[in-house]
Design a protein around this nucleic acid. Structure first.
Lengths: 251, 251
DNA sequence: TCAAGTTTTGCGGGTTCCCGCAAAATGGAC
DNA sequence: GTCCATTTTGCGGGAACCCGCAAAACTTGA
């Protein structure tokens, strides 16, 4: 019995996915559906699945959170992420939770029916990883060269985005205030806050801290959802420094 | 010749709208389509339309921006807003640009085909205004009672969201720094920052300024798009105080 | 083990932010 | 005009933030 799970809140998109799965190109005897992240996690737990398609934006839990739970139980589960946007926030969210050697794909909703069909074939049947072209450009990030944010910079960005003070960040990450400020300086530099305009009287127009968040939002490095998740992580575990979770990402 | 315009970037949703329009319940001889805000504005300018359906989230220009342009040319144009979310940010965005006596509707995408059909009938044929139930709860805002934000509070919220300093806000809005800070205090109170947690040593965990933005984001009072728009308004016209645009909203 | 590179930390001080208090200024209502 | 409610402003001080500088501390490799 080969069962697949589709998790997608929008009715039309869900219908579309169902339709493509039903084309009969892959061995698919049953498709079950979820319209929010929690249901997706529950259903994945209750059924023995061959693969999962997850929308990234869903009520209750995001696709990333659902994937994390599913992979925690079965790291070999093939997952296709199916998203509206190629925002760095999403891509980074996915990249952070992919276990080593996992099979997955990242497709945009603008993809044609054909491309989706092929992706399903590749990921679910042949076990290949498929990443949409627009998304791939964002993949190499998190490293360290270039002008992109490193993991620590990203962490501290989220910390100020949820409104923590230097003091609170220092406590949370187990470091001195001065180090926090040092990292913030790095972050500001990366986000291009070095060359901020001044007012006629020579005073600054922008508050670096708030400005950094604004720029990160508008360049899609983070988004509201990212902030909410960071917030709830903080609420659960305010005193904890960064703990590396699962593994690395695979090619 | 009765022509209607549909502006919606998602293919499936666009197809759905087209289908419902084609049910033949209203006198509709032609439906033209746009997949972004700019095209919508252009097409509305080029054609003589009987009505418009606008998705709120589109590339290039948002539905709100498109509506503003369309109404600037013809304030009597019936417009149905068709949105994924009932966020206050969107509702407020629409409420701010509705000209006096305009005919419009606000529907969520979760609405059934039937509800959409009825809304189209009501707005385009009978000239009634239809506001989705979940949305209506947010309508009364902008007034002054209660715990909701007034217009000035909302303005200053956007100012700090784009990263302006007190100084810069004061210059922009033509007031003293102390007044800016006073308004910020109001804002913080409304957003519930009064009762913030303290650290064990009695120091604050949160930076009010950043925290306010975070809370406004997570309670959907503003969103990334709102901030981007505020930003571009600022870029165009940094020195200008608040200028009231068009009219009031109608019943 | 040592040297070279990176990160963290302390110090110091200038700026900005936050906010209580109370005196002006403003805006209606009568 | 007078009276009242609201808003704006100045003052003042404490906290938080930003950042240059240079000394520790940690990493990495040979």
């Amino acid at each position: 019995m080969s069962t697949y799970l589709i998790a997608e809140d929008d009715v039309l998109h869900r219908g579309f996915l169902r339709e493509v799965m039903a084309l009969g190109e892959i061995d698919c005897e049953q498709v079950i559906e979820a319209e929010n992240g929690e249901d997706a996690i529950r259903l994945a737990h209750e059924h023995e699945l061959k693969g999962v398609i997850l929308d990234l934006q869903m009520p209750k839990k995001t696709g990333v959170q659902a994937a994390k739970a599913i992979w925690a139980e079965n790291p070999a589960m093939p997952i296709i992420f199916w998203s509206n946007y190629a925002d760095e926030a999403y891509v980074r969210g996915v990249a952070r939770i992919v276990p080593a050697g996992a099979t997955y794909g990242y497709l945009l909703k603008t993809a044609s029916k054909d491309r989706l069909r092929r992706a399903i074939q590749c990921v679910f049947v042949e076990g290949q990883n498929i990443i949409d072209r627009e998304v791939r450009g964002l993949q190499k990030r998190g490293q360290k060269g270039s002008d992109e944010l490193t993991e620590v910079e990203y962490e501290i960005l989220l910390d100020i985005a949820i409104g923590l003070t230097d003091q609170a960040i220092a406590a949370r990450r187990n470091m001195s205030m001065r180090s926090v400020q040092g990292r913030l300086q790095q972050l500001y530099a990366k986000l291009g806050l070095a060359s901020l305009p001044l007012m006629s009287d020579g005073r600054a127009v922008f508050n670096s801290r708030s400005r950094a968040v604004a720029m990160a939002l508008s360049s899609r490095i983070i988004n509201s959802k990212t902030i909410e998740i960071a917030e709830s992580e903080y609420q659960q575990d305010p005193e904890r420094g960064l703990r590396r979770s699962a593994g690395h990402q695979s090619g």
